[in-house]
C-alpha cells in the first residue's frame, strides 16, 4: 500500500525525534503519548471514567487554569503597551482603545480576570459540597484557599493600573478599609501604597505585584495544587 503524505511525515526521522510515539493505535502507545509529552505528562495515562463526568467537577478548576493562561498571555502583551507611571498610564489605555486589537486585548484581560474570580470561588464551593477536602486531600484544600486569596489579590492590584476614576477610587475605598485594622491600620495602608495617598508609588507597587510577584506565587501554588491532585488520588471521585 502506498504511504500517504501524513504517514510519511509522521514516520520521518525528524518527526520521530520530536514525537517518539507513532500513531497511537494501541493502548500502550496511547499511554506513551501522554507520558512522553512534556505538556501532557501532568495527566495520568488512564483516568477513572467518572472523572470525565461534567457534573462531578463542572470543569471549574480547569476553566480557572485556562483563564489564568489567557490572562498571562494577554497580560504579557499588554505589558508591551503600558507604562506604569501616572503621567502615561491612562493615556496608554486611551491609545489602546483606539486600536481594534488593543481593545480586544484589554477586554479579554478584563473579562477573563472577572471570570477567574468567579470560577475560582465556585470551584471552592463545588469542592466543599462534594466534601472533596477529606483526607488525604486536606492540604490541597489549603493550597486552594491560598490560590483564591491570590486570585483576589491579583485582580485587586490590576484594578488600579488603568489609572482612571474607577481605578483610583476603587483602590482608595479598598485601602481605606485596611486602615480600620486596630493599632496597625495606617501603617498597613502606608506599606501598601508607599505613601499616604494613592499616587505614583502605589501604581508602581501594584504594577510590580500584579505582573511579577503575585503571578509567580500563583504559578507556584498551581503547580503544587495539580501535583497534589495526582498524588492524592486523581481528580474527583471517592478514594
Amino acid at each position: 500500500m502506498k504511504k500517504g503524505i501524513l504517514q510519511r511525515i509522521s514516520d520521518s526521522a525528524v518527526w520521530r525525534s520530536i514525537f517518539r510515539t507513532g500513531i497511537p493505535d494501541t493502548d500502550l502507545k496511547r499511554s506513551m503519548l501522554i507520558f512522553n509529552n512534556f505538556f501532557l505528562h501532568i495527566f495520568p495515562a488512564k483516568m477513572k471514567r467518572h472523572g470525565l463526568c461534567f457534573s462531578f467537577t463542572f470543569c471549574l478548576g480547569g476553566i480557572s487554569c485556562l483563564l489564568f493562561i489567557i490572562l498571562t498571555v494577554t497580560g504579557i502583551l499588554l505589558m508591551f503597551l503600558y507604562t506604569p507611571s501616572i503621567e502615561r498610564a491612562y493615556f496608554d489605555m486611551q491609545a489602546l482603545a483606539l486600536l481594534f486589537n488593543g481593545k480586544i486585548l484589554r477586554n479579554l484581560h478584563r473579562w477573563s480576570a472577572h471570570g477567574m474570580v468567579a470560577t475560582v470561588f465556585f470551584h471552592m464551593v463545588r469542592v466543599f459540597y462534594t466534601r472533596s477536602y477529606r483526607p488525604p486531600r486536606e492540604f490541597n484544600w489549603v493550597v486552594g484557599i491560598g490560590l483564591l486569596v491570590l486570585t483576589l489579590a491579583l485582580s485587586y492590584t490590576g484594578y488600579l493600573l488603568p489609572w482612571d476614576q474607577l481605578a483610583y477610587w476603587g483602590i482608595t475605598v479598598g485601602t481605606t478599609i485596611m486602615t480600620y485594622t486596630p493599632f496597625l491600620g495606617s501603617y498597613i495602608r502606608f506599606f501598601m501604597l508607599g505613601a499616604d495617598e494613592v499616587g505614583h508609588e502605589a501604581l508602581l507597587r501594584f504594577y510590580v505585584l500584579h505582573c511579577v510577584v503575585l503571578p509567580f506565587f500563583t504559578g507556584l501554588l498551581m503547580a503544587i495544587h495539580f501535583w497534589r491532585v495526582r498524588k492524592d488520588g486523581g481528580i474527583s471521585g471517592p478514594l
Partner: peptide
C-alpha cells in the same frame, strides 16, 4: 470570551483625579 470581548468594552472612565470624589465611591465588585 472572544464573543464577550467583542460585544462589551472594558470600562475606562475619566483620568484619575484625587479632587473629584465620585458618589458613591465603590471598591471592585468582589
Amino acid at each position: 470570551l472572544m464573543i464577550i470581548s467583542l460585544l462589551f468594552d472594558a470600562p475606562l472612565e475619566e483620568l484619575a483625579n484625587p479632587l473629584v470624589t465620585p458618589n458613591p465611591g465603590k471598591a471592585p465588585w468582589y
